[in-house]
Write a protein that binds this DNA or RNA. Structure first.
Length: 828
RNA sequence: GCCCGGGUGGUGGAACUGGUAGACACAAGGGACUUAAAAUCCCUUGGAACUUGUUUCCGUGCGGGUUCGAUUCCCGCCCCGGGCACCA
């Protein structure tokens, strides 16, 4: 009988479904294991990246289940988002219809791959039953002050016609469409992620070792903590003060001017009704026209304009001119920088350009710096000069001393500054979760009442892709009553960033059909946290940081007990073809559907796992999958040829392996190796390689197998364990071969094999023999041979003798079962 | 500039915690089977040299070091990928 993947796979997929094999239920007698892969956006078809991601996950899920864990392995759809709207613009099909049709098709594709999902838990984030709870969280966060509305400069993508979060701007370009991001002033809603910045940073330590170091490093960078000092500078000749953040309070005595960001609100006040007003406001306007990326690139020319106003250095009393400078960022620190030209390169260049004073306050030990002769700022360490009572201190020591001096004066304080900004979540889009807010002329901003949730997304909305929120024109939606006074009011027409939905879906999977509340606490506390999360590295900051934040918020709202959602994280590499990421424009896309049709789901799965370890990029190779397919055929023929003979024998060869001792050893060695490879580091490629070796060994002895009990039992043990161990990788063919071998049932319900240590370990080992560190021979000797015996055997080797000759053996290094190194010195 | 990750045959990749570098697979070559081809099965395959061997030398980005022994540890570089960055 020939191996026909399609027939085999469809048969078992049907049987698994009939049996509801993948259903997960709480079972307090078993250890739980929650395995999750990042859910897909229903873009239309499954691509190779999905196949790889979900195959890796499926192997782990099936393996853990066979190991006796109660496994939760759910799947659903990250279903809100821009492509649905773009499709609507292109073809006129409603986003809802487009999305659900894609889901239906992609679900069938995932089922065709044989993934072991508990489909009863499936949901799409665009289901009102789902986003209803997100709206509830929004309201709860609003009540707690974790949501606020602010008018501010935001990243605007003119192509997507929407606001983007900082995390969604990559190198000045929109993360989705790649067009230039502009700054635009806009009212929008924010989640106060900065309130959790310290905890998000601290908890990174807890994840260390279980998350890839580069993801943690990226998150640390993104949070961007720096410690420094806040210093107040009084304005000269008018009320008010400027506050700055600096990490270099030791240079305060050298601060000679002040730089403000163009967006700084004080700028307008300072120049109001002065002769500088039009000049300064022109400069501000010009600067803000520049896109953010150009403005903040290092090559960009540093420019500024004098406001005509001064502030006072709190320790020297110096009148410092206040400038507006294009390189000062409004959203870092306080948006104002005290300029110390002698010790900061940017300030130095600025001072030279505009003829501002330079005061040296730090000198390297034993050296004198002349401000007039300096060609660049001195940014290194040294000793304080020109700094009043602090002269002679090392600058490091001066930092805390000057800060506490400022604290005594009431002019400053030590502080911590974060780079991370609050998460702007308003999107001027239709296909997203409506923000549950109502604007009333009398009562102001009001959250929708809980009992009125969900705020349903209206249907039949015309999507043009132009202008602002498509829902603004839907009177039925916009016009509503104020939840407080009952008077006429208007709804918020923006929707939430789709990253909000993916920030909590993993908790909803624990009780997906809960109607009266977002989660069933009993189920949540049983299943959470996710034991193993698997997904692409591209979400290292965005999704993974938001999800961590949201989990902490939900904890503080009393919904969950955990602080971190994902115990362990595996970031799988990309699928590459011909040296480049698969993309339509490069024309190197391999459609998984074609692979399944030609080679079957099992061969496709096998190749994804075999070609590279999961965290590395994987090169797709048409010959490679051919090879995986060949291996399955080879396995099939082996079982098919021997099955009838094997059925006729009892299971165990009562410990006496007859002529096939090597096979018995190899079998147990393979069980050990495969188990460890999966457990230790998800090394599926080497696990598969060792099973291929066992198959190769079996082919070598195949024609010598005797029809006696010893031989057949050894072969039976080898083949049956092989099939069992292959089942997480290639579940369909494994179940079919198991059936061909005369068994009932499905291997997912079969326990994972245990190895017998006496067989797994070799009794005769190959010892490397070195002379002066160079390999000269190998000898096969019993395991744990004494040094004396090993030395004697080694020295009797021909080639060893040749090198030892009549030189004196001065030393012998013996590492049992590995190497023996004979050290000789030349005799004269 | 700072922080992560990586560099091994023609290719994808192995090598536990310092102990035989190149498992397994692809590609290539050879053989068996066949009228033939495909499929299948078997063998060879890091480079060089010669005395063709149970041989020698070289070889894991480069240069040093530690060690009986280094792909693995240390120091100094080079290159590739990624993150952060006029961040005060």
């Amino acid at each position: 009988m020939e191996y026909k993947p399609e027939a085999v796979e469809k048969k078992w997929q049907r049987l698994w479904e009939e049996k509801n094999l993948f259903k997960a239920e709480i079972d307090s007698t078993k250890k739980k294991y929650y395995l999750l892969e990042m859910f897909p956006y229903p873009s239309g078809r499954i691509h190779m990246g999905h196949v790889r991601n979900y195959t890796i996950g499926d192997v782990v899920a099936r393996y853990k289940r066979m190991k006796g864990f109660n496994v939760l392995h759910p799947m659903g759809w990250d279903a809100f988002g821009l492509p649905a709207e773009n499709a609507a613009i292109g073809s006129g099909v409603a986003p809802k219809k487009w999305t659900y049709e894609n889901i239906d098709y992609m679900r069938s594709q995932l089922k065709r791959m044989g993934f072991s999902y508990d489909w009863d838990r499936e949901f799409a984030t665009c289901d009102p039953d789902y986003y209803k709870w997100e709206q509830l969280f929004f309201i709860k966060m609003f009540e707690k002050g974790l949501v606020y509305r602010d008018r501010c400069f935001v990243n605007w993508c003119d192509s997507c016609k929407t606001v983007l979060a900082n995390e969604q701007v990559e190198g000045g370009l929109c993360w989705r469409c790649g067009s230039q991001v502009l700054l635009k002033e806009y009212d929008q809603w924010f989640f106060k992620i900065t309130a959790y910045a310290q905890e998000l940073l601290d908890d990174i330590e807890k994840l260390s070792g279980n998350w890839p170091e580069r993801v943690l490093s990226m998150q640390r960078n993104w949070i961007g903590k720096s410690t420094g000092t806040l210093i107040k500078f009084k304005l000269d000749g008018m009320d008010g003060e400027i506050e700055v953040f600096t990490t270099r309070p030791d240079t305060l005595y050298g601060a000679t001017f002040m730089s403000l960001a163009p967006e700084h609100p004080l700028v307008k006040t300072l120049v109001k009704d002065t002769k500088n007003e039009s000049n300064v406001l022109n400069f501000v306007e010009e600067t803000l026209k520049e896109d953010r990326f150009t403005r903040t690139s290092e090559q960009y020319e540093k420019k500024g304009v004098f406001t005509g106003r001064y502030c006072i250095n709190p320790v020297t009393g110096l009148k410092m001119p206040i400038y507006v400078a294009n390189f000062v960022l409004y959203d870092y620190g306080t948006g104002a920088v005290m300029a110390v030209p002698a010790h900061d390169q940017r300030d130095f260049e600025f001072a030279k350009k505009y003829g501002l004073p330079i005061i040296v306050v730090i000198e390297p030990r034993g050296e004198h710096l002349d401000p007039l002769a300096m060609e660049q700022a001195y940014e290194d360490e040294g000793v304080l000069v020109n700094s009043g009572p602090f002269n002679g201190l090392k600058n490091k020591d001066a930092m805390t001393k000057i800060t506490s001096h400022l604290e005594d004066m009431g002019m400053g304080s030590s502080t911590i500054n974060f780079r991370i900004r609050d998460w702007g979540i308003s999107r001027q889009r239709y296909w997203g979760a409506p923000i549950p807010i109502v604007y009333c002329d009398k009562c102001g901003v009001q959250p929708v009442k809980e009992e009125d949730l969900p705020v349903l997304l209206p249907e039949g909305v015309e999507i043009t892709g132009k202008g602002v929120s498509p829902m603004e024109g839907i009177d039925d939606f916009v016009n509503t009553k104020c939840p407080r006074c009952g008077g006429p009011a208007r709804r918020e027409t923006d929707t939430m960033d789709t990253f909000v939905e993916s920030s909590w879906y993993f908790i909803r999977y624990c009780s997906p059909h809960e109607n009266d509340r977002p989660f069933d606490p009993e189920k949540t506390s049983y299943w959470m946290p996710v034991d193993q999360y698997i997904g692409g590295i591209e979400h290292a900051i965005l999704h993974l940081l938001y999800a961590r934040f949201f989990t902490k918020v939900l904890r503080d709202l009393g919904y969950v007990e955990i602080s971190e959602p994902f115990e362990r994280l595996l970031t799988q590499g990309m699928v590459i073809k011909d040296g480049a990421k698969m993309s339509k424009s490069k024309g190197n896309v391999v459609d998984p559907a074609d692979m399944i049709n030609t080679y079957g789901a099992d061969a496709t799965r096998l190749f994804c796992l075999f070609a590279a370890p999961p965290e590395k990029d994987m090169d797709w190779s048409d010959q490679g999958i051919e090879g995986s397919y060949r291996f399955l055929g080879r396995l099939w023929r082996l079982v098919d040829e021997l099955k009838d003979r094997l059925k006729s024998t009892e299971d165990q060869a009562d410990g006496r392996p007859g002529n096939l001792e090597n096979i018995k050893k190899k079998t147990h060695h393979t069980i050990k190796k495969v188990t460890e490879d999966i457990d230790r580091r998800f090394r599926f490629n080497t696990a598969i390689a060792s099973m291929m070796e066992l198959v190769n060994e079996l082919y070598k002895v195949k024609d010598t197998i005797q029809d006696n009990h010893e031989d057949l039992a050894v072969i039976k043990e080898a083949i049956e364990n092989l099939v069992i161990m292959l089942s997480p990788f290639v579940p369909h063919i494994a179940d079919e071969l198991w059936y061909m071998l005369g068994h009932q049932g499905m291997l997912l319900e079969h326990p994972w094999p245990e190895y017998d240590a006496t067989w797994a370990e070799k009794s005769i080992i190959t010892l490397a023999v070195q002379v002066n560190g160079k390999l000269r021979a190998t000898i096969d000797i019993p395991k744990d041979t004494s040094e004396e015996d090993a030395t004697r055997t080694a020295l009797s080797e021909q080639n060893v003798k040749r090198f030892v000759n009549n030189n004196k053996v001065t030393r012998v290094i013996y590492v049992p079962n590995r190497v023996i190194n004979i050290i000789i010195t030349a005799s004269k």
